[in-house]
């Protein structure tokens, strides 16, 4: 290869790279990490006319990036509608799917097999015997982290073991979500609290938790889930509630509305391990007419 060929090849690459920046007709969607798989491999694959640019982080990170003006996506979809009460304050949002907390375990380790044997009724006993290396995510960074705390708090009430959380929790269990996944997949962690959709998608073995604990059931919201609370670093107190995915539009264009509708109603949701209750999608707040009439 001569130098001239090399320079020509570099120039061609530069030109190729430069063409791939945002095209004006594409729709940008910022979403909770737990939605990423369903959106990337479900929603994006089933619709081809509008290019979709999906960006996923922890829900709290997404909300902060958008609230601070660091990102300006067309659609924001979060794993907790409470984040639309701050830091984000959209005039309206739509709740479109629910999820459940499960206890994923590694069936190849002895501790993992103990969890499998204990099952949905006694899952906390191996954890209390501290033979299980448990992993969870940071409650200050994403809802999965504080929902794990809610589930343990509710489990303490449900099983009448008031010190359950205090005995189980240890700061060394906390990993960033991505690190938690790697540690779990390579066998460095025996068990981890995860969303059911995530465990289903990746083929993890998991223990189902009772609906009083797994935060999946809107029927248990009042007087039960809401008893569990957590204070975020900014002082905001989040309260236990059903795990419900909520979404809003920030730039109302026809192609954005079409993507939004497919996101909230698409059959891809159940295929990727989410649940869609009968009264979903539900509109909260003053949605503009073209949106509210679509649901």
């Amino acid at each position: 290869m001569t130098r001239r060929h090399f320079i020509a090849a570099t120039a061609a690459l530069l030109a190729g790279g430069a063409c791939t920046s945002d095209s004006p007709s594409s729709v940008s969607l910022m979403a909770a990490g737990s939605l990423n798989h369903a959106l990337e491999n479900g929603l994006a694959k089933q619709q081809s006319e509008t290019p979709l640019e999906i960006e996923a982080h922890g829900s709290v990170t997404v909300a902060r990036l958008v609230a601070e003006g660091r990102r300006a996506p067309d659609i924001v979809s979060l794993a907790d509608a409470a984040l639309f009460d701050g830091p984000l304050h959209p005039a309206w949002h739509v709740e479109f799917a629910t999820n459940a907390l499960v206890l994923a375990y590694n069936p190849d380790t002895a501790a993992g097999r103990q969890l499998a044997e204990a099952g949905p009724a006694n899952w906390y006993e191996p954890l209390l015997r501290s033979e299980v290396r448990l992993g969870r995510t940071d409650p200050d960074l994403d809802p999965l982290g504080y929902r794990t705390l809610f589930a343990l708090d509710l489990a303490g009430r449900y099983y009448e073991l008031p010190d359950l959380s205090a005995r189980l929790l240890d700061p060394r269990q906390i990993y960033p979500e991505t690190a938690l996944i790697s540690q779990f997949e390579v066998g460095a962690i025996d068990a981890a609290f995860a969303y059911r959709s995530m465990a289903t998608a990746r083929g993890y073995a998991f223990v189902e938790l009772p609906p009083q604990i797994n935060l999946s059931s809107p029927a248990h919201a009042r007087n039960w889930y809401e008893r569990a609370t957590y204070r975020l670093p900014d002082g905001k107190v989040v309260r236990g509630g059903p795990i419900s995915y909520a979404s809003t539009i920030r730039h109302l264009r026809p192609e954005v509305r079409a993507v939004f509708r497919r996101q909230c109603r698409g059959p891809y949701l159940t295929a990727f391990g989410f649940s869609v209750p009968d009264d979903y999608p539900r509109v909260y707040g003053d949605a503009p007419a073209p949106v509210s009439s679509a649901f």
Binding site: S21, D22, N36, H37, E40, E177, T178, I181
Partner: peptide, 17 residues
Amino acid sequence: YPRTLPVQIWVAFTTLG
């Protein structure tokens, strides 16, 4: 966006491990 290979690796990792 536009995604580089490291970002594409991260997306693959966070969706399917």
